[in-house]
């Protein structure tokens, strides 16, 4: 910066500053993301109950709804989990939209030609990939939790809804695509959260990236086991 060039003050329009610190937004993103990842681990392990049979899977579903009974009313624990998850999802989406808007303001007119040198496919698809995963979660709740979008319909057992849904190759395809997108989202997300919370350095960088990759593959692999097993008739 040896040459200091300054445009006329009159010509320089003050850019609209972000109201909230960009790093604060990233911390909200990282912390809410970690909460959601912890939930995903429990969700994936719970799904594997399907291999222990119909009773085990339905019993697990029933247990989640009755934890703490009779000391607390039915569904208390589940409601608390749902409130925490909903808050995390809202915080995650708020941070994403705020950073997206800030980035748009920071470069309203893009390059005529722009090429990536280092960015991974995962990091490039965080925003639209996140939108798709978000829409998938809505569909997933309507399908398997509430049953309204499920071929078996509501009022059936979780196991029946699962088998009915994944017997349809089209529904399985939607789940597979969404889960792979989620896996990529997590790979970049885990690395990014480590950076944002100030826990990365040159020595750890490789380990963090390797962990993010292995974790995402194992988690998504565990999720994918269930629909593929139903589709190929291993579970029915």
């Amino acid at each position: 910066m040896a040459v200091v060039t300054v445009t006329q003050p009159g010509q320089r329009r003050a850019p609209k500053a972000a109201k909230t610190s960009s790093v604060f937004k990233k911390v909200v993103m990282a912390v809410s993301g970690i909460i959601l990842v912890l939930y995903l681990i429990a969700h994936m392990i719970g799904n594997l109950k399907v291999f222990a049979g119909r009773e085990s899977f339905n019993g697990y579903s029933h247990w989640i709804r009755t934890i703490g009974e009779p000391a607390v009313p039915a569904q208390t624990t589940l409601t608390i989990i749902r409130i925490v998850l909903l808050a995390a999802v809202i915080a995650h989406i708020w941070a994403a939209i705020a950073l997206w808007r800030q980035a748009k303001r920071a470069r309203p007119n893009g390059y005529v030609t722009k090429k990536a040198v280092a960015q991974s496919y995962a990091s490039r698809t965080m925003r639209w990939g996140g939108v798709i995963v978000g829409l998938f979660v809505v569909y997933h709740i309507l399908d398997l939790t509430m049953g309204v979008a499920n071929p078996e319909g509501p009022g059936t057992t979780p196991y029946d809804r699962l088998v009915a849904g994944f017997s349809n190759p089209l529904i399985t395809a939607v789940y597979v695509i969404a889960l792979i997108l989620l896996g990529m989202h997590l790979r970049h997300g885990i690395w990014s959260a480590t950076q944002t919370l100030g826990q990365s350095n040159k020595r750890r960088e490789r380990t963090v990236n390797l962990f993010a990759l292995v974790f995402s593959v194992v988690l998504i692999g565990g999720f994918l086991l269930v629909p593929f097993s139903v589709l190929f008739g291993l579970v029915g």
Partner: peptide, 12 residues
């Protein structure tokens, strides 16, 4: 932030 730069998303 005041200068109107974007936020870091650790892309690299």
């Amino acid at each position: 932030d005041r200068e109107g730069f974007g936020g870091c998303t650790n892309i690299g």
